[in-house]
Simulated assay, not measured.
Amino acid sequence: MKDKLRNGIALSLVPQLLIVFWLGNRPDLVESYYSKGIYPVISEFFRILFGWIPFSIGETIYTLLIILAVRYVFKNRRRIKKHPWLFLRNVVLVFSVFYFTFNWVWALNYYRIPIAEQFAIRDSVTPSEVVDLTEQLILKTNRLQLEITGDSTEMVEVPYDREAIFDKTVEAYGRIQKELPFLAYPFPSLKKATLGALASYMGIGGYLNPFTNEAQVNGLTPVFRLPVVTAHEIGHQIGYAKENETNFIGYLVTMKNEDIHFQYSAAAYALSHCLSAVRRTDEQQFEKLFAKVNTGVQENYRELYEFNLKYANPFEPVFKSIFSTFLKANQQKDGIKSYSKIVELMVGYHDKFPIFRPDENNYDK
């Protein structure tokens, strides 16, 4: 490649940044022409292309690129030392190509119209509303746990392997699209993360490879949490980039599943977010609410806590800090805290669609 072309590609990063910044202020254009126009074609193409392959093509590509990059630096170390500006130009060139591809094949979805508008719900709440929703979710989660186990002190064991959970989640998307067409999920591509242990050490339950549109799910995650994680990653595949929105999609699709174990997974997941939200503002209120949670539900939370503790390491905060910076750079000003913003969406949704029917007894006897 000639130097003029290399320089041109590297310099193209500047107009790219300006265009993406402009699109960030025009969600109507992104929604109409990209998220509902170009992106579905791209994502379905990649899912058809790679979905049938049993292992992750994306992880294979990442591994090869890392090896090639290390080999290049080692092989050209003297030249790099002699011409550092040329090396910097080449780095910018690579980043420019990466940035263009990343936005074109997936990341412009960060700038689409918020999902709250598609559901016609509000996304602003008061502390008392969070407490009210928490109390409702405690009732819901306790009832599901007791119905499954018959003993309020017994931890729920999901009786499915990971492949069955994948299949049941895909089926749930098939049913929910009749009610919510914008959650349609044709040509599934769900895969267990090859590097599950590494993902666990990084504190990752799953991720979407934006360049191959493969949803990677960490199979080491406690099984009772896997249904929501799986539905969350599919949410990314169908074009929702923000973490609070895919958390909400994961919760909603899993809660609407016909299987009671999936409903429990969703309720326990939603409850954990609400309890955390209460704890951040009122520790005493949190203690009162947590005391109402069945011991069996608490045991599932303990299972998840012990799993996270097992993989805790001094580098995890670094990984989370890097990811938080990435999220802030992509329209999520709260960074990694945006995961917890699901609470606002759940309050708005259940204000419009109550957890319990009007004729249903909401109180434990």
Rank of each mutant, 00 (worst) to 15 (best):
T325Q: 14
R280F: 01
G206H: 03
E316W: 13
V278R: 09
P222D: 10
G205M: 11
Y363I: 14
S338Y: 04
I53S: 06
T141G: 10
E303L: 07
V343I: 11
E283M: 10
N257V: 08
V70T: 04
G348Q: 10
R122L: 03
P227S: 04
F50G: 03
I42R: 06
K341T: 14
A197G: 13
I165P: 12
F21P: 06
L29Y: 08
E299F: 13
E163L: 15
I80S: 00
L195V: 12
F50V: 01
A10Y: 06
V20W: 06
K192I: 15
E44V: 15
S321H: 12
Y305R: 14
E258A: 05
K140N: 04
L86M: 14
R175H: 13
V318E: 04
E179I: 10
D259M: 05
V30K: 00
L11H: 08
V278M: 10
V228M: 10
I53W: 12
R280D: 02
R79P: 00
E147A: 08
T153M: 06
N103S: 07
N109G: 04
F119Q: 04
E59Q: 11
D282N: 15
N90F: 01
I19L: 05
F319R: 03
R357M: 02
G24H: 05
D151F: 09
T169Y: 07
E31C: 11
D167N: 15
P159I: 02
F50C: 04
H83Y: 11
P181N: 02
F45V: 13
I148A: 01
D351N: 15
N308Q: 02
D334N: 06
T141W: 04
K365Y: 13
K320R: 15
N244A: 13
E287H: 09
F307D: 07
